[in-house]
Design a protein around this nucleic acid. Structure first.
Lengths: 334, 334
DNA sequence: ACATTCATTGGCAGCGCTGCCAATCAATTT
DNA sequence: AAATTGATTGGCAGCGCTGCCAATGAATGT
């Protein structure tokens, strides 16, 4: 009719009330199925709602009732399936309880995370879910005083603000190292990505080196690319590392994407796995489980973490730390 | 002090105004940097803001100004990097223009998508971004009258509601078929996933078969699993297909995840690629580009699609369809 | 027949902020 | 010196809905 995107002003609850011949509060009660009303009234209201195509205005409703059903979720990246999994778990729990998620991507940047927290808080969300325990000072202050529940996900190595749902990150690194050591590998290298931003990857590496040190060993060499992780970075990283240290017998990767890249390099080069070189990843991704030789890795319950964090945050659970654990997958590459 | 998550009632603009000794509208003007005010006033206001830790309430602001900076984004799934890419593009453009994205996952279910549209519309978003052109009748009606810009992404084969940003889906299937035919493959099979839900995969297959038909050929056999796509489903699907038709010389997969699964099967079985069997995927994923032999596939500009859709929707561009095209990657598996 | 209970219902004051308009005051203009 | 201009500023009416409370009328009890 009009050609414009904005149609005439939206139908309001008052108009529905007038059309149905009842009071505003009655319409409100019927729509929220809260309080009492007769069946006849309900039918009259619903009829008017459908006839007018009424869509409730949550903005107004939230303002009036001082309590939003929005939940802010901040993830470091979308490129990594890990966060997609966490989001999936959280989304599920959120949807089930009638909440909506407002999502932000921090790009592994604490300053950006801080900005996102500020702008999310201005929507007065019921809760904010974040990755990790590392935040700027101001971010922590805002979260503490923001009136929203806070859930920090994935890592439990440190002090949380409110709810913490994850697993011992450094311990995954230690477990990985112990596994390689138990299998007899001694000349171990590391191929990783930007550690200054990905603090959890840094914690894993620290745990890994810690366990090596307990056996009187250390990493023979490391190849760290100052970019986000990817299959390609893993492949190229391993290539450079091997060029420097052809005597390596095992490599620990910063995650499975990287490890798959390394695995592909070995396939191309005909490097025997694990005979000539052992590979160890992190995450327990699908693709790493289905390579001709499943990659040795640590599986983390990511969907569960998202789901648990969302559920606890929305059910008024007391502040607590939940350790969901992790699982070492032996695979066939180590 | 209190132990409860909800702290004392949040600071309001009125309190800031009182603390700064100015009027409410002045605070509002300073905070939004809109209208005029003296430098001295600005300092007084900002000082009070910082002192009280004031966080603006967008809910109230949006209600008062009748125009939200929220944008709804509905994706079919989080498990598929494709949508993560689209989201990344959209998120970026949204952030840059000061908008927030509210995200929902439809799980490839039109009814669920309809629900999500209804609940997003109740937040009076500035725009709604969706995947594909297929929606329920009621969903289309709500979107038309919802007062929000609508951008349908990824596919342009059909009629859009407002903005459409994507590429010719069926044509990707045709291009894939023509490529295989040009290379001399004639005994072609298909390995796919749940087509009833993933309508774009169905359109690709239709285009593929269409091109085969034009050469007087047809698919020799097909193996379709009624579940979402994954590396595993691709591997197992190819295994079953080959068991039935060991005479196949090429396989078209519903996407790259599936194709990578098929590729892994061939590696494990020692099936020569492309000598004995050619593989063709769809999406142009990173992992498919980095396998020892890069997988033949179609690369789609997903991040660009998300970014373009968001930008057009927020800049008041007229209703239009934007074809961003796609690119056939020859790879080494066909 | 009159008091008491209870399910329904409507009225209306905000929720915290923005938009509009009028008021104020110093700087210019005639 | 009176008038005009323009930059600042405060007041206040909503935005659309919910929460509270009073009003209504029917049902029940004594």
């Amino acid at each position: 009719m009009d050609g414009r995107a904005k149609s005439a002003a939206a139908v309001t609850l008052a108009e529905v009330a007038a059309a149905a011949g009842v009071g505003e509060s009655t319409v409100s009660r019927v729509l929220r199925n809260h309080g009492s009303f007769s069946a006849k009234t309900r039918d009259r209201v619903m009829d008017a709602v459908n006839r007018l195509g009424y869509v409730p205005n949550m903005i107004a409703g939230t303002l009036a009732s001082a309590g939003s059903r929005l939940v802010g979720v901040i993830v470091p990246s979308f490129s990594n399936i890990v966060f997609a999994d966490v989001l999936r778990g959280a989304s599920q729990a959120l949807d089930d309880s009638g909440h909506q998620s407002v999502i932000g991507v921090s790009d592994y940047d604490p300053a950006r995370e801080e900005e996102l927290i500020a702008s999310m808080l201005s929507w007065r969300p019921a809760a904010i879910l974040l990755a990790g325990l590392e935040h700027t000072e101001r971010a922590r202050a805002m979260l503490k005083g923001g009136g929203a529940r806070v859930a920090e996900m994935l890592d439990i190595d440190g002090n949380g603000l409110d709810l913490v749902v994850g697993f011992a990150t450094a311990e995954t690194g230690r477990a990985s190292a112990r596994h390689l050591l138990a299998r007899g590998y001694r000349r171990i290298g590391y191929v990783g990505h930007d550690l200054s931003r990905d603090t959890r990857a840094a914690k894993r590496l620290a745990g890994f080196e810690d366990a090596l040190a307990q056996s009187g060993l250390c990493l023979i060499d490391r190849e760290i690319a100052p970019v986000p992780s990817s299959v390609e970075v893993g492949r190229d990283g391993l290539e450079r590392l091997l060029a420097r240290r052809p005597d390596l017998d095992a490599v620990y990767f910063s995650n499975d994407d990287m490890a798959v890249g390394g695995y592909f390099l070995c396939l191309s080069r005909g490097i025997a796995i694990p005979g000539r070189l052992a590979l160890f990843g992190y995450n327990g991704l699908d693709v790493a489980r289905l390579t001709p030789q499943p990659i040795a890795t640590i599986r983390t319950p990511r969907v569960l973490i998202g789901e648990t964090a969302a559920r606890l945050a929305l059910t008024g659970a007391p502040a607590q730390t939940v350790d969901v654990g992790f699982e070492l997958i032996e695979g066939a590459t180590a």
